[in-house]
């Protein structure tokens, strides 16, 4: 009897949030005529693209028990690179933006993994610094992306599915594969569980963390590049506040802030969807947009509360 209860509680904690997502979608479907329509879901796909791309990489860093708050600024730096390379072919421009993200990610990872700096503080500082670097080049004004890149941003598969959304999904699936099917992914989970034990047992802790930060950098850069491509221009709002939305989505998706637990798919995808769907659904019902922060905040609170409960069970 007690076992059944415990099992029910565990299942509830593990899958409850997927049920919540489903329930919310159902409620919006019932109360709003315009919610469950193809055009609205195409909207949702576009709206979630940029957060999905950034949250994918952040999930990996969180699983290591670290954090990267500079992802929003990395996105802005990448978008700025897209502007600076507006005259070269689109492919080269995109590649340059991603390489910039990789370089920043490696630098972050080096500071955290090799120099042992506290990831929360160091990436909080660098968040400001990277944005500053980008501002020097954009002079704080709106800049145009190259025509080729802007065209890529409007591509649609079968005339309906936005390609940028598929690109974001590709990141998520690749990262999920790395996490679940490779040694590197197993090492990340082990490090997140107990870094000391991982080191003792011979896991290359520093290299594994460096790799997580590198992938996170690329993923954040992809987010900025996709946004630049979609808008056809680079605004100073690129990536602003994204770090907090991304952390929220990842944690809502069941990844632990303490590390060692979580996944990209379905966790992070559903976390992002939940935030975007609520925003969208409230909009289709004509609810004041000022309600959204409250609802999102409440969700984040619940997610973090559940996370600490799970973690307590682990330490007991």
């Amino acid at each position: 009897m007690r076992d059944d209860l415990a099992r029910a509680k565990r299942i509830g904690m593990e899958y409850g949030f997927y049920l919540l997502l489903l329930a919310i979608i159902l409620v919006f479907t019932v109360i709003s005529n315009s919610f469950l329509t193809i055009s609205n879901w195409a909207q949702i796909a576009i709206a979630s693209t940029f957060l999905l791309a950034a949250a994918a990489g952040l999930t990996l860093v969180l699983i290591n028990g670290e954090i990267d708050l500079s992802i929003g600024s990395i996105a802005y730096v990448a978008a700025t690179v897209v502007y600076l390379t507006a005259d070269v072919p689109a492919g080269v421009s995109v590649l340059a933006a991603l390489v910039a993200g990789l370089a920043i990610g490696l630098f972050n990872g080096w500071l955290v993994a090799y120099l042992g700096m506290n990831s929360l503080l160091v990436t909080l500082g660098l968040m400001i610094a990277y944005r500053g670097v980008a501002l020097v080049f954009t002079e704080g004004t709106v800049k145009q992306a190259g025509d080729g890149v802007a065209a890529l941003g409007q591509l649609k598969l079968f005339g309906i599915v936005p390609v940028i959304f598929l690109v974001a999904l590709a990141f998520l699936f690749i990262f999920q594969w790395v996490l679940r099917e490779t040694k590197l992914g197993t090492f990340w989970l082990a490090i997140g569980n107990n870094e000391d034990s991982a080191r003792k047992i011979g896991i290359p802790v520093r290299r594994a963390k460096l790799a997580a930060y590198a992938l996170c950098g690329i993923s954040a850069a992809a987010s900025g590049t996709l946004l630049a491509a979609y808008l056809g221009e680079i605004t100073t709002f690129t990536g602003r506040g994204m770090e907090f939305q991304a952390v929220a989505a990842v944690v809502i998706g069941g990844t632990s802030l303490f590390g060692g637990r979580g996944n990209v798919f379905p966790g992070t995808i559903c976390g992002v969807l939940l935030l975007i769907v609520i925003n969208n659904g409230l909009g289709t019902r004509g609810v004041s947009p000022f309600v959204y922060p409250f609802v999102a905040g409440a969700l984040i609170f619940i997610a973090i509360y559940l996370d600490s409960i799970k973690n307590r069970a682990r330490q007991a």
């Binding site: 197993t186 569980n193 107990n194 047992i201 896991i203 060692g260 682990r314």
Partner: peptide, 24 residues
Amino acid sequence: FPTLTVAENMFISHLPSGQVPFSV
């Protein structure tokens, strides 16, 4: 490692490689 499986815990330091490069 609490959140890893029994099998992963047993072989963490020498996980068998799979067919696809890098995979376990």
